[in-house]
Simulated scan of single mutants.
Amino acid sequence: MLKLKRVHHIAIICSDYQKSKAFYSQILGFEVLKETFRETRQSYKLDLTLNDEYVIELFSFPDPPSRVSRPEAAGLRHLAFEVENVEVERQKLIDAGITAEPIRIDEITGKKFTFFADPDGLPLELYEG
């Protein structure tokens, strides 16, 4: 068995770099740690932190292929973020023009959650902690 310490980061490839950069930094509140343009790949790599913890690498590539990302497709189902109050944070998404599903209750934990999507349709979740 491997001896893993923690999840180091999540890598996301976006189709519109500037739109996704604004979404993750200005809407979701991630802080930009470092932005690198990789000339040979004609691509950006944006390192994002949350509460001083390195979390997301946002990549751009010329003409990335589409990927099925509906929650029931094989592969990564969604990326969830813990929040104090789902109602408050969901309303902030709506105020920013982002569609969020109605709040549901987790049948197992009794916690509130909702789903929304990033600019490329990647399923994201707010989960009340």
Rank of each mutant, 00 (worst) to 15 (best):
K19Y: 09
A74E: 15
Y17V: 06
V7Y: 00
V88R: 15
E87F: 13
D95P: 02
R70Y: 12
L79H: 13
H8M: 00
E87N: 14
I108T: 15
K112Y: 14
L28S: 08
D52E: 15
N85R: 13
R67S: 11
R77K: 12
V32A: 05
L79C: 11
S43P: 00
G129V: 15
L79A: 13
K45Y: 08
Q18F: 13
Q42T: 06
K5L: 05
T40K: 13
S43L: 00
L93S: 06
E84C: 11
L76N: 14
D120E: 00
V55Y: 12
K111T: 09
F59K: 12
K3M: 03
K92Y: 07
P64N: 02
S43D: 01
T109R: 11
G75M: 10
L46I: 09
G121K: 09
E87I: 12
K111L: 10
G29T: 04
P123E: 05
L122R: 01
A117L: 07
A117E: 15
D47S: 09
D95S: 03
D63H: 15
Y54Q: 15
L46R: 05
I103P: 00
D118V: 06
G29N: 02
E101K: 07
V68G: 15
G97N: 01
H78K: 07
S15M: 10
L4P: 02
R67A: 12
G110Y: 03
P102N: 02
A74L: 15
G75P: 06
E35D: 11
F37I: 00
H9V: 02
F23A: 08
R77I: 10
K111E: 11
L126G: 02
T36L: 12
P65H: 08
H8R: 04
V86A: 13
L46G: 07
Q42R: 06
K19C: 08
K92W: 07
A100K: 01
A22H: 12
I98C: 04
H9T: 04
K45H: 13
P119G: 02
I13N: 08
L76M: 15
S43T: 01
R6M: 03
E53F: 15
F116K: 07
Q26R: 09
D52C: 13
F113N: 12
Y54T: 14
Y17N: 05
D106S: 01
F81V: 10
E107P: 02
N85A: 11
T114Y: 07
G29Q: 04
T99F: 06
E35L: 07
P123I: 02
T49F: 09
K112M: 11
I56L: 13
G110K: 06
E107G: 10
D106K: 04
S20H: 10
V7A: 00
D47C: 05
Y17K: 08
F61T: 12
D120Y: 01
D52M: 12
E72G: 10
D118S: 08
L2G: 05
T109M: 08
D106W: 03
Q42E: 07
S20C: 10
L4C: 07
A100C: 01
D63I: 10
N85T: 14
V55N: 13
D120I: 00
L124C: 03
F59W: 15
F116I: 07
L48M: 07
G121W: 08
G110P: 00
A100D: 00
A11S: 11
L33I: 08
E128M: 09
D118M: 05
F61M: 14
K112P: 05
